[in-house]
């Protein structure tokens, strides 16, 4: 399992794992590494197949963080799982839209919507 300070709140609802980012800013490379390792651990170590990433706390994120999310998406797809993103603020959504990553990720407005039918 990943080392370092916990950067994600993990909840389980049925067979779905909800990972909520604790940080407001996902910028620092050290943090991004830790977050990446914790995310990848959910799939690779814990074998979770249905994962919702909750962004409600996140006010800033950089392209380095986007890179980790892209890798996470690949890992979940390889494991034949499902990944959804939810509660992304308008400013942050714009970052996904500009980079067209809103086409790659399955994004929902709320956690409820993300859980529905996953």
């Amino acid at each position: 399992m990943a080392t370092g300070h916990r950067r994600l709140d993990i909840d389980e609802v049925g067979d779905v794992t909800i990972a909520k980012f604790i940080d407001k800013k996902i910028l620092d490379e050290g943090n991004i590494q830790i977050i990446g390792n914790q995310l990848f651990g959910l799939v690779e170590d814990d074998g979770r197949k249905k994962i919702v990433l909750d962004f409600s706390n996140v006010e800033y994120l950089s392209s380095a963080a986007l890179g980790k999310l892209i890798t996470m998406d690949k890992k979940v797809k390889t494991a034949k799982g499902k990944l959804r993103l939810c509660s992304v603020r308008p400013d942050i959504y714009e970052v996904f839209a500009i980079t067209k990553l809103n086409k790659l990720f399955d994004m929902k407005d709320t956690q409820e919507e993300a859980l529905a039918g996953l």
């Binding site: 950089s62 392209s63 890179g67 892209i70 998406d73 980079t99 067209k100 990553l101 086409k103 790659l104």
Partner: peptide
């Protein structure tokens, strides 16, 4: 290129 890293930082700056 959608799943590859790189190029997004410059794109975000421009935007």
């Amino acid at each position: 290129n959608l799943e590859k890293p790189g190029g997004r930082g410059i794109m975000l700056m421009r935007s």
